[in-house]
Design a binder for these strands. Structure first.
Lengths: 168, 168
DNA sequence: CGTTAGTAGTTAGAGTTCGAATGATTAGAT
DNA sequence: ATCTAATCATTCGAACTCTAACTACTAACG
């Protein structure tokens, strides 16, 4: 199970002493695992429900936010506006949402659920991360809270770190 | 800032009582943030170094594992074998790695670094997640440890949850 | 030996994602 | 009033990812 491969870290460790090289590697590994799980989950969801992960995310976003602009939806879903547009195109084709331009400012496009969309939300919302809910529920409340808070902290950390790439 | 949109949670909450619906939503949100940060970081890295995220991950994997099979690399990097092959194709084109078949079992393909690849690893390894390292180093050691352990636990959780999609 | 099953790697096809460029519309300055 | 700058949404091009075939090869069993 455990592979202590004894990699030569040689002189990679800086003199600062804190040098969490192994910790960083571990963290990056966990992130990749999470990213992959997310992808796999999305595909499985698509097969099971006909809606992919992002489609469901956007759909839920529209359900929660009501009449909503594209950009607001992008912020809410943590996706770029371009991606949101693509997802909305598909949802609109299937008459799950509808879009219309604001009359006061014709640049703005609002999105809202159709009746069909509202139905769909109710029937699929429970499915969204169902396995996760079960596993979370199995944990003590305090532990659950701890995990979620720490995950949020990590998200802050990496989001922030995105802004620092190669500043020499 | 806070939008208490008063969504009708109506009867969605099961009778179990624990029902961490909000917690789940929060967790999924954090996951999407992490996924996105990962993507953005990869693109920024590509622009800065000419190597994309996955390319660097695989490259580092080869550096750590030495002579390594495609599948072992896939496991190490948390990617499918297909993706690894595609990445290796590109790295091989650029003479960063080389591949050769095993003589004892001709199905097996080993990958190893070229001299050029070894050089590249040394020059870019520090760049990999540099922003993250800084931010981690700024934290107290105990806190750092806590975050990393909990992230690992989350990764276990979601990896595991992938196997459960829609079992009624 | 020869057929069958299993394994390692690869290719094909479909889907997501982003940044950059574009079009339309509005707000602001002169 | 008009010209310029900013804003919102969208389209375009490139990259990554996966699963599901497919090929090549080895092993196992009669």
């Amino acid at each position: 199970m455990s592979n202590n491969s004894m990699i030569d870290s040689s002189d990679t460790a800086p003199s600062t002493g804190s040098a969490p090289a192994d910790q960083t590697r571990l963290l990056l590994k966990s992130i990749r695992r999470i990213v992959r799980a997310n992808d796999l989950q999305s595909r499985a969801l698509a097969k099971a429900t006909g809606l992919t992960g992002p489609q469901l995310v956007i759909l839920t976003g529209v359900a929660e936010l009501g009449e909503v602009t594209t950009q607001a939806l992008a912020d809410h879903a943590d996706l770029s506006a371009a991606t949101v547009v693509m997802v909305l195109d598909k949802l609109e084709q299937r008459a799950i949402v509808e879009r219309y331009r604001s009359t006061s400012d014709r640049r703005i496009v609002y999105t809202r659920l159709t009746a069909k969309g509202a139905e769909l939300v109710n029937s699929t919302r429970g499915l969204f991360g169902a396995g996760l809910v079960q596993r979370l529920a199995a944990l003590p409340a305090a532990r659950r809270q701890e995990l979620i808070e720490n995950l949020g902290a990590i998200a802050d950390l990496v989001t922030d770190a995105t802004k620092t790439v190669a500043l020499d």
